[in-house]
Amino acid sequence: MFIEQMNTKKFNFILYLPIPLGFMFLMIVNYISSQGMDTEKVIHDLINQIGVNLAFVLLVGPLSFACLFLLFWVKVLHQQSIRSLTTSRPRVDWGRILFSFFLWAFITIVMVSLAYFANPENFHVNFQPVPFFTFLILAVLLIPLQTSFEEYFFRGYLMQGIGVVTKSRLWPFLITSVLFGVMHIANPEVGKMGYIIMVYYIGTGFFLGILTLMDEGLELALGFHAANNLIGALLITSDWSAFQTHSILKDLSEPSAGFDVILPVVIIFPILLFIFSKKYKWSGWKEKLTGQIPENNENQFNKIEENV
């Protein structure tokens, strides 16, 4: 029912196109630019000029602002409530967001702790109170907006729009999952580890797509994504990652793409899907992931009007 939220007579394909086309154009430009420059060196030079925290703001700020712009576009131009872009439920379920956030935050903390105690020589304790807590404030303000933009764009706006056009759940699931992974192709991690890391990025896209379609809303994906980026940025950084921060630990090891890249996709994500499916009693997997979209949904969904 989540995709059908946009399937009303108010859907305007012309107004829908500028956001995805503009974003795709920026992705292509970003990728082409990354092929002609050393992304890692560019980030280091920026940090040397303005400092870690301000560089973080400049790198994350645009996507944080883009989240607000996207919500404005949906609310004002499409006249679609933010609630309907977020969930098929009568109201946004903050309990789902928080459960997903704290579950993945806990798992992330455990995994980083195990890695540290298993090979302490690979890490440097990077904690400095003033820079860390300054970064903490910036991260709490900006990272949830940055991750929310990615979720609202890929699993919300793009998934709903493609679903309306194709009358299918499978096509938006496949397209948005792959595009989410491809969006990260210009990250410095790709240059260091090779394209094998795209398995992780695209696999994460499929995982978040399943969460959205099976749970009929973005809440679980929003919570997971925020925890992944926020807790990760606070716990650990490295000289070769996209996020270089005043984190607690700094990874000194030489990056390599091995089983640790595949592990989340083939083991951890399926376990999380099992946990979520049991807790929220998911059913009808085939229909929710590959089923068809009804022709028009206005009468069914416009019964709930919210000025969110």
Rank of each mutant, 00 (worst) to 15 (best):
E4Y: 07
N7T: 04
T8L: 04
T8Q: 01
K10P: 06
F11H: 04
I14V: 09
P20D: 00
F25M: 12
F25I: 14
M27Q: 13
I28T: 12
I28P: 12
V29W: 05
N30F: 07
V42E: 01
I43T: 04
I43H: 00
H44Q: 02
I47R: 04
N48P: 05
I50F: 11
S64C: 11
F65Q: 08
C67P: 03
L68Y: 14
L70E: 06
L71F: 15
V74K: 14
K75N: 14
Q79V: 02
Q80M: 14
I82T: 14
L85F: 05
T87P: 02
R91M: 13
G95R: 03
R96H: 07
F106E: 06
I107S: 12
T108S: 15
I109C: 09
A115D: 07
N119K: 07
F123Q: 06
H124C: 09
N126L: 05
P129L: 11
V130F: 15
P131H: 13
P131G: 04
F132S: 02
F132V: 05
F133A: 11
F135S: 01
L136T: 02
L136N: 01
A139M: 00
A139N: 03
L141M: 07
L141P: 01
I143K: 11
T147P: 06
S148N: 08
F149N: 12
F149E: 11
F149I: 08
F149A: 08
E150M: 09
L158H: 02
M159H: 05
I162A: 08
V164I: 06
V165M: 02
S168K: 00
R169V: 02
L170R: 08
W171C: 04
P172W: 03
L174W: 03
I175E: 03
T176M: 11
G181R: 09
V182S: 08
M183H: 14
H184P: 14
H184L: 12
I185T: 14
Y195I: 09
I196A: 04
I197F: 13
I197H: 05
Y200C: 02
Y200L: 14
G209F: 04
L211M: 15
T212N: 05
D215L: 05
L218T: 06
F224A: 13
A226M: 14
A227Y: 10
N228W: 14
G232Y: 08
S238F: 03
F243L: 00
I248P: 03
I248V: 01
L249P: 10
D251K: 10
L252Q: 14
P255H: 15
S256C: 05
L263E: 04
P264I: 03
I267S: 06
F269M: 07
F274P: 00
F274C: 09
I275V: 15
S277G: 13
K281W: 00
W285Y: 15
I293V: 10
I293G: 01
N299A: 12
Q300V: 01
Q300M: 10
F301Y: 00
N302Q: 10
I304E: 10
E306A: 13
